[in-house]
């Protein structure tokens, strides 16, 4: 018998954390890598623990539809990014997602929220890509929303929606570390040449 894998929405209320990568090392942990390029790449690899975490990747899809939950199931209800990366006319992101996480009144879990809440543009899709690909993409103004490295730092270190990844509401595993550490890593990565891991 063929086992089919339909896109089942089991991820809304995820169970126990499934990630071992719950820690994030700061730049100091890489100080003993003497080669600067190598150190830079290593720090990006560390950043990758965050960038490839479901909290980020779920809304950085490469296609038209986001995923959800720690197990990154298809978003339920089915949602398309739309022209403005904000859903379709009649069902936009804010049809369900408000300015903050909302605990469910029956059952476990929560509906995540933040102002704004939206899908990353398709040019910034990361889902399923290698760290090298993500890194190259992040540095490419044509694919990063015309950001220079300083703007990338600002995004990582201070953006509110990025910060949501560490306060994702009941039923979702936070991204490893803290946004502060991610900011420090990003700064150090940039200062060391913003080298991408191979």
């Amino acid at each position: 018998m063929t086992k089919l894998t339909l896109a089942l929405a089991t991820g809304l209320i995820a169970a126990a954390p499934v990630f071992a990568q719950d820690s994030l090392s700061g730049p100091d942990a890489f100080a003993d890598i003497s080669d600067e390029a190598e150190r830079s790449a290593a720090m990006f690899t560390e950043m990758g623990k965050v960038l490839t975490h479901p909290r980020c990747v779920n809304c950085h899809p490469v296609g038209d539809t986001p995923t959800q939950g720690d197990d990154m199931q298809a978003h339920s209800p089915p949602l398309v990014r739309g022209d403005a990366d904000f859903g379709a006319p009649g069902m936009t992101c804010n049809t369900c997602h408000g300015p903050q996480n909302v605990a469910l009144t029956s059952g476990q879990g929560s509906i995540p929220g933040h102002e704004p809440w939206m899908i990353a543009p398709v040019s910034m899709g990361w889902n399923g890509k290698s760290l090298n690909e993500i890194c190259t993409q992040i540095k490419d103004p044509a694919r990063n929303g015309d950001r220079d490295l300083e703007a990338i730092y600002e995004h990582m270190a201070t953006d509110g929606l990025v910060g949501w990844a560490w306060d994702p509401g009941e039923g979702r595993t936070p991204a490893p570390g803290t946004q502060d550490v991610l900011g420090q890593l990003t700064r150090a990565w940039i200062d060391t040449g913003a080298v991408c891991p191979s």
């Binding site: 809304l12 069902m91 049809t95 369900c96 408000g98 909302v102 009144t105 029956s106 879990g109």
Partner: peptide
């Protein structure tokens, strides 16, 4: 459903559709 899965509770909030079951 109470979890924004079915849409039966849809209202307009400042002119946009909104699931009232997940809106405190």
């Amino acid at each position: 459903c109470g979890i924004a899965q079915c849409g039966a509770c849809t209202v307009m909030l400042d002119g946009m559709p909104r699931r009232s079951c997940v809106t405190p």
